[in-house]
């Protein structure tokens, strides 16, 4: 990407990394996104809503395209489409999960249509393959100043609301019937979480794109929940992992010629495999670890 490689002098390397404005923006936006994606991801995995996260990211694709087409920020299009879809899913209830056959078939059809619509919007704009590529695989190195600002506002608000509704959200996630009897507005909490998830998806798409979104929105939470069954610790761990994947991924991409999305997804996948592997071994082998 640039002439100079890493020198293994950490301070000098960081100065090198941050010498250009686009890299400063990338690190800033990446950090903000990782904060909200990691925090939201903990609950996504706890609630078993990975499929919904995936679905929202695909619905966001035509939203981004519409944003480009209408000459407003693509992020605004993403947010509009994702939040609308989240409210729709929340309104339909929790049945829109992978386990429900009729629903998952319906959702599959909607997703295909959604991607097709995005394709049409991009074609109507200028036939720009570049734009499509950016939203499918992320475009963190091309983040504008106003997008950083919007990302900051969303990440800060999303994180604050998540922490504020943390206990009722955990309660409604693990034990909805008892939570309802104890006075938790389970339906409202569920819709509220979906809206935050939609916002997290919208800003995460900037970094890793529609297709690689699981790397920041599901993998850190999945790894954290494998490492600990303490809710507070798991929540923090999920954020830390998302931050680590983003920072290291960005640095590796900067000093090599390979895309950011590849490194972030590889790190996320690698960490999950390392954490999960000892638990999936046959019992006899596992005894050696214990």
């Amino acid at each position: 990407m640039v002439g100079q490689g890493p020198s293994w002098d950490v301070v000098a390397d960081i100065q090198l990394l941050l010498q250009f404005h686009f890299m400063q923006n990338a690190f800033l936006a990446g950090t903000l996104v990782a904060l909200l994606a990691g925090a939201t991801g903990y609950f996504v995995v706890l609630r078993g809503q990975s499929f919904v996260a995936h679905m929202l990211s695909q619905v966001g694709f035509p939203g981004a395209a519409a944003g480009v087409l209408l000459h407003v920020s693509p992020v605004l299009g993403l947010i509009t489409f994702c939040v609308a879809a989240a409210v729709g899913i929340g309104w339909l209830g929790r049945d829109v999960e992978a386990g429900n056959r009729a629903e998952s078939a319906a959702v599959g059809s909607i997703l295909a249509f959604s991607l097709g619509l995005g394709l049409l919007f991009f074609r109507l704009y200028a036939g720009s393959a570049q734009g499509i590529y950016a939203f499918l695989f992320g475009s963190i190195l091309g983040i504008a100043d106003r997008d950083v600002l919007l990302t900051f506002a969303i990440a800060a608000a999303g994180l604050a609301v998540l922490v504020w509704m943390g206990r009722p959200l955990v309660f409604a996630s693990v034990d909805p019937d008892v939570a309802a009897a104890r006075g938790v507005p389970v339906r409202l909490v569920s819709i509220g979480f979906l809206v935050i998830l939609a916002l997290a998806v919208a800003i995460t798409v900037q970094i890793v794109g529609t297709l690689l979104i699981f790397a920041l929105l599901v993998a850190p939470g999945a790894s954290a929940l494998q490492l600990t069954a303490r809710p507070g610790l798991g929540f923090v761990l999920s954020i830390v992992l998302a931050l680590a994947f983003t920072w290291v991924g960005l640095a590796l991409a900067y000093f090599s010629d390979f895309p950011v999305g590849f490194f972030v997804t590889s790190l996320a996948f690698g960490a999950y495999v390392v954490i999960r592997a000892p638990k999936t071994l046959p019992v006899r082998t596992r005894a050696v670890y214990a």
Partner: peptide, 30 residues
């Protein structure tokens, strides 16, 4: 409530579940 078992993959400690009965309905920073 009437239920089948908890999902075997549900990763939350027994003590956390009991704690939810105490303040699981409260909003705000825990």
């Amino acid at each position: 409530p009437q239920r089948r078992r908890f999902d075997p993959d549900l990763r939350i400690r027994a003590t956390d579940l009991v704690r939810l009965g105490l303040d699981g309905g409260r909003w705000g920073v825990p």
